[in-house]
């Protein structure tokens, strides 16, 4: 048992070191937001400073922060909901299909996620102009949904495939409808998988900045786009960047921490 305690101690020390490696940059960014501009960079680096809220005042001067936050939330939730609505049924259908082509279609969906944005963004831009959606949240939701719904389809395909069919078959013989077998029998068992997929979708669209940079306007742009703009050319505005990063990372970090249990659980079931 002694060897075992020692081993656990070694494991934990290693983990603490790794955690430190991860927390130092994050803490640096957080602390930057509270530093006065002349103290953020001194040479050699200084480790003490007198905290200020100047940087937060500044970002509220430069941006409508609440509008940015709203845009980020609307776009990532919109993308996620739409992707799940399209992707979950499609994943189920492919998993339950007996056709040889089902797997081909599944891989086709996976391939769609690899499409680099530069190949599609400009044609899509012109398409959105023609249907009058340019500059709206919809433009971003629509294009991000293609990538994400493709990914959800593929994820859910592997979940449903791993699920034994017996329960659905039993339900069907008991007179359950096809829809019922899907909606009431199969779906509840893959909730962790759906949550994991949703997390991936939210993270992806929350952090994406190239697409919204191109497709939104001043009223609809999200935090990720403003982050880069807060980084002016004539000034290193690390302080304002740090302040804005509070708004762009805290919600998603909280959510990840909150749903972390589902995340691991979801992935666990998905891969077998």
């Amino acid at each position: 048992m002694k060897a075992r305690t020692r081993q656990i101690a070694i494991e934990r020390t290693t983990l603490v070191v790794i955690l430190a490696l991860y927390m130092i940059p994050v803490l640096w960014l957080v602390s930057t937001a509270y530093k006065p501009p002349r103290e953020i960079f001194s040479s050699p680096p200084s480790f003490t400073f007198s905290p200020t809220l100047f940087n937060f005042e500044r970002i509220f001067q430069l941006f409508d922060v609440w509008q940015l936050l709203k845009s980020s939330i609307v776009m990532s939730l919109g993308t996620t909901v739409l992707s799940l609505l399209l992707g979950v049924p499609a994943g189920y259908a492919l998993a339950r299909s007996k056709s040889r082509y089902a797997i081909v279609v599944a891989y086709f969906f996976l391939a769609i996620r690899t499409v680099p944005i530069i190949a599609t963004l400009i044609p899509f831009y012109l398409m959105m102009r023609d249907i009058g959606l340019l500059g709206t949240w919809w433009a971003v939701i629509l294009i991000n949904t293609t990538l994400n719904c493709a990914f959800v389809t593929w994820m859910m395909f592997s979940y449903f495939r791993a699920l034994p069919r017996d329960m659905e078959e039993a339900a069907l013989t008991d007179g359950c409808t096809l829809w019922g077998a899907f909606y009431r029998v199969a779906l509840p068992t893959v909730v962790p998988g759906i949550i994991a997929s949703a997390l991936f979708c939210i993270m992806f669209s929350w952090n994406d900045f190239l697409t919204p940079m191109f497709l939104t306007n001043s009223d609809t742009k999200p935090l990720s786009v403003a982050l880069l703009a807060s980084f002016g050319t004539k000034d290193i505005t690390w302080g304002t960047l740090g302040a804005l990063a509070h708004f762009s990372t805290v919600p998603i970090v909280l959510m990840a921490l909150f749903l972390n249990r589902y995340f691991v659980q979801g992935l666990t079931k998905g891969v077998h």
Partner: peptide, 25 residues
């Protein structure tokens, strides 16, 4: 530990790049 390790994954990549650019200056 696992919960904390999720933080870097969720930080916007643009911000990650900028953090390291500043730290390595």
């Amino acid at each position: 530990c696992l919960a904390f390790l999720l933080i870097p994954v969720t930080i916007t990549p643009v911000v990650v790049g900028l953090i390291f650019r500043a730290l390595l200056a």
